[in-house]
């Protein structure tokens, strides 16, 4: 069963009196254990598609399934619930909580996902260790390097064991060497933990770890 499944997705925006179509009937799937790279020039609709697959944005037409569950695209709270249970996000800008240290960033994500008690702290620590950040667990984001921040963001995204991991330009703010290390992490999360990973990127290095590369141009996917 695919962890992410999008069928005939159309997305239009109203701009003044005109309607602009960003996506023209896009379909794609991401299987467990698979890394899919989505490439395309700026304005091609790749981030819009990522948001739709991540249940953040509702499409104008089409259907989305997350881990086999159809997304009720008209119900914001149902979409939030799907995000909470099945999806982890990694952002280009990291978007860590600056007032929380690395470990607490992961803990807080688990709290939002409804985890409580001792297990919460243990799971957070496990992911911090998995990201080789044990010695930085109590550092605030401002005291971490870009690569370390992104690894905290990945630990936060993985906390709660979501079926799908969606990453938006995860290497854009990292130097080449650190970017490669981060991509290897995504690869191992897919291979070792069975997660379905979708990476939206301009970075050609992503091809090295991806099982499939999809190119999106003018709102259409070209394999």
């Amino acid at each position: 069963m695919p962890v992410l499944e999008a069928s005939d997705i159309v997305k239009e925006y109203q701009e003044g009196r005109n309607r602009t179509r960003i996506l023209h009937g896009v379909s794609l799937t991401v299987e467990p254990g698979e890394v899919v790279a989505l490439e395309g020039p700026s304005g091609s609709g790749k981030t819009t598609l990522l948001q739709i697959l991540g249940c953040i944005l509702s499409p104008t037409e089409g259907r989305v399934k997350v881990n086999g569950e159809p997304a009720d695209l008209s119900d914001a709270s149902a979409l939030a619930e799907l995000r909470k249970r099945h999806i982890g996000f990694v952002f280009q800008q990291f978007n860590l909580f600056p007032s929380l240290n690395a470990l607490e960033n992961v803990q807080y994500a688990l709290q939002v996902k409804g985890h409580r008690g001792r297990g919460l702290k243990e799971e957070a620590r496990r992911w911090i260790e998995a990201m080789e950040l044990s010695d930085r667990a109590h550092y605030l984001p401002r005291d971490l390097s870009g690569g370390q921040k992104q690894r905290v963001a990945i630990a936060r995204a993985m906390a709660g064991n979501p079926a799908a991991l969606l990453a938006d330009e995860p290497t854009a703010n990292l130097d080449s060497q650190v970017g490669t290390q981060v991509l290897q992490l995504f690869r191992s999360l897919a291979t070792d933990h069975g997660r379905g990973v979708l990476i939206v990127t301009h970075d050609p290095k992503v091809r090295d770890i991806a099982d499939r590369v999809l190119r999106i141009r003018d709102g259409l996917i070209h394999a």
Binding site: R85, N95, F97
Partner: peptide, 16 residues
């Protein structure tokens, strides 16, 4: 605001 947006993105609700 971006932090609140992050709370929502990771599944938090308005009530949170």
């Amino acid at each position: 605001i971006k932090e609140f947006g992050t709370v929502k993105a990771i599944g938090g609700s308005n009530a949170d």
